[in-house]
């Protein structure tokens, strides 16, 4: 039981370190990246590029594995349909991301920087997730 927590805890810790080194936990950096038509800061494109490059290799390895190294089976998303909720939800997310310069990962990580601001954002985010629940899974 305790052993099973090691992988997610280590993964989360490396993830949080990467977010902060890359600038994702600095709302001004995020805002600079989204200011495409103004004073654009391309730093976050390098963050995404580095992360996607490593994960592309991980997917290539995953396709050759029967099961994960430390769990019974893979449990991965397999949908490929483009739906209205996918697009409408992502559109709303982009607006919220731009307003405060925070997305879910950096918001949790920011508990180590400004606990009050992070907690306010996270409380509203969790409320929003609960609000959206009845509208999910209809395609």
């Amino acid at each position: 039981m305790i052993r099973a927590l090691v992988v997610p805890l280590v993964s989360g810790t490396i993830f949080g370190a990467g977010l902060t080194i890359g600038g994702m936990t600095d709302p001004a950096r995020v805002r600079g990246f989204l200011d495409l038509f103004g004073d654009w800061d391309p730093t976050l494109a390098f963050v995404m590029g580095g992360a996607v490059a490593v994960m592309a290799i991980a997917w290539a390895i995953q396709r050759r594995m029967q099961r994960p190294a430390l769990a019974e089976a893979f449990s991965l998303p397999d949908r490929s349909d483009i739906t209205v909720p996918l697009i409408a939800g992502s559109a709303l997310f982009g607006v919220g991301w731009a307003i405060a310069g925070l997305c879910p990962g950096p918001a949790f990580a920011a508990l180590a920087i400004d606990p009050l601001a992070a907690a306010i954002f996270l409380a509203a985010m969790l409320a929003g997730m609960a609000i959206a629940r009845p509208f999910e899974a209809r395609g």
Partner: peptide, 16 residues
């Protein structure tokens, strides 16, 4: 923070 958090929560759940 509250407005953005609500939008991020609703949007990411709908958008999976």
């Amino acid at each position: 923070l509250i407005v953005a958090g609500l939008l991020v929560g609703i949007g990411t759940r709908l958008g999976s």
